[in-house]
Each structure stands twice: as C-alpha cells, then as structure tokens.
C-alpha cells in the first residue's frame, strides 16, 4: 500500500532523512518511534506530500507522491492524517469540520456529508458535541473529532503524527481506544508515537528511527523481545523503565 524507497531529505546541509526505506502492507499497523528530532514526523509527512523530499521515491497505492504529474490534492484526500495539535478549524463546529472536505473535495451533498459526520461522531462517542466549536472541547475530544474528520474521507490508510503527545494523561486513553478499534477493524495505519503500550497491543511492526535513518524495522515480538540495534535497546530501556 505505502512504499518508501531510499528517501533522503536535506535542510540545506543538514540531513533530516537518511536513505529511509520501508513498506506498509494493506491492513498493517506500523508504529514508528525514536528520540525526538530523529525524523519520524518528517518521514510520515513525506508520505502525503506535506513535506517534500530530496531523493528517493514514495508510492501510495501505486501512485508516486513525488512525481510532478501526480494530482497531490486528490492523493491526499485518500490518505487520512491526524496531527499532534489536532488542527481542527477553529471557526467551524465539530460537525462542520467533518463536513467541509467531504463537500469541497469529494463533492458529496450536504445531507450525505452531514449524515456521515453524525455517524462518525457517534462512533467516537461525541454525538453530543456536534454543534460545539473546537475551543469548547477538551483536547481528547478535539483529537477524536480530528480522527473523525480524516475518516470521513473514507481513506485507504491513516497517518498519525504523535496523536497523543499534546494531551493530558487522562485523555490519552480515550484517543488510543479509538485508534485501537480502528486498527482492529483492519485500517492500514502508520503511527508515530511513544505509546509503547499501544504498539504492544495493535502494531504488527515497529520501526525505530534515529538521526534521520531507519535503524530497526522489526515485528512487534522481535522489537520488544530482542531489539538488534544498541540504540533501540537504549531507547526502550529509557522509556520502559518508568
């Protein structure tokens, strides 16, 4: 479904991504972790072309992200993305946030888009919040609306960029629960996160990045059982001891 081949990216002379290659199959859940500044977020943003890359190739469902001929808006509409800071549109209600792109990008009618929004909000346990503005919602609620907004486009895959890093501890669970359900339903997911509990529960594979390079790409059992690289061992020992 998603193939990343030898992707490198420089900011001037600073190498943010260093020859990264990985693939995510249909229905697979891949957790990408690593110390901050290791390039995880940059890599995931390259997948839907929000960040340009300097070298290599990324294809999504057979379509090359970097090619000039690619209709990026169309490709992006098929890949859901959830951001660290939610990025709900503050001037719209929760429901309107979910309706906007359905109408303007997919060309759905107002009624269909609204029904879809209601259905998704119900799935997120947020039916009561439909008419509220983002500022009236808690962080956890906002992030679930953001997930609903992405799902409304019927995406073929979902990208999560540290979806729980900006949340208070008690709200992390409500967002992770939704993501676990999504994974169990068979959604293709790439998740940048430090939530190792989530990785243990639903990930098929764990990718560990450091200094822009993919250091380890292992099955969940291998990664938590016997990580091969020293850096991954060090990282795990640091975040799992607490």
């Amino acid at each position: 479904m998603i193939e990343i081949k030898n992707v490198s990216k420089w900011y001037g002379t600073f190498r943010v991504l260093d020859d990264c290659s990985m693939a995510i199959a249909k229905g697979e859940v891949v957790v990408i972790c690593g110390p901050s500044g290791s390039g995880k977020s940059t890599l995931i943003k390259c997948v839907n072309g929000l960040e340009p890359f300097t070298k290599g190739e990324i294809t999504v469902d057979g379509i090359s992200v970097g090619a000039r001929s690619t209709n990026l808006p169309k490709l992006r509409s098929r890949i859901g993305m959830v951001f660290q800071n939610f990025e709900l549109f503050p001037h719209m209600t929760a429901a309107d946030n979910i309706v906007l792109a359905q109408q303007k990008v997919l060309g759905r009618g107002a009624e269909e888009a609204r029904a879809k929004a209601q259905e998704l909000l119900a799935r997120m346990g947020l039916s009561e919040q439909a008419a509220k503005f983002p500022a009236q919602l808690s962080g956890g609620q906002q992030q679930r609306v953001a997930i609903a907004r992405a799902l409304a486009m019927d995406p073929i895959a979902m990208l999560f960029d540290e979806p729980t890093s900006a949340l208070d501890p008690e709200m992390i669970t409500e967002v992770l629960d939704v993501m676990v359900k999504l994974a169990e339903e068979g959604m293709t997911m790439a998740v940048v996160t430090h939530e190792m509990g989530f990785a243990r529960r639903v990930a098929h594979r764990v990718v560990f990045m450091d200094q822009g390079a993919i250091v380890e790409d292992a099955t969940k059992a291998d990664f938590f059982g016997k990580p091969r690289s020293e850096r991954a061992q060090l990282f795990l020992s640091k975040i799992l001891t607490h």
Binding site: R78, M81, E87
Partner: peptide, 14 residues
Amino acid sequence: KRGQISAAMALGLT
C-alpha cells in the same frame, strides 16, 4: 497557524 494549512491540504483541499 501553518498547521491549519497543513490540515486543509491533508484533507485534499487545493
């Protein structure tokens, strides 16, 4: 915020 534009683009808006 720059992130608002990213979010709009990620949804497929031009």
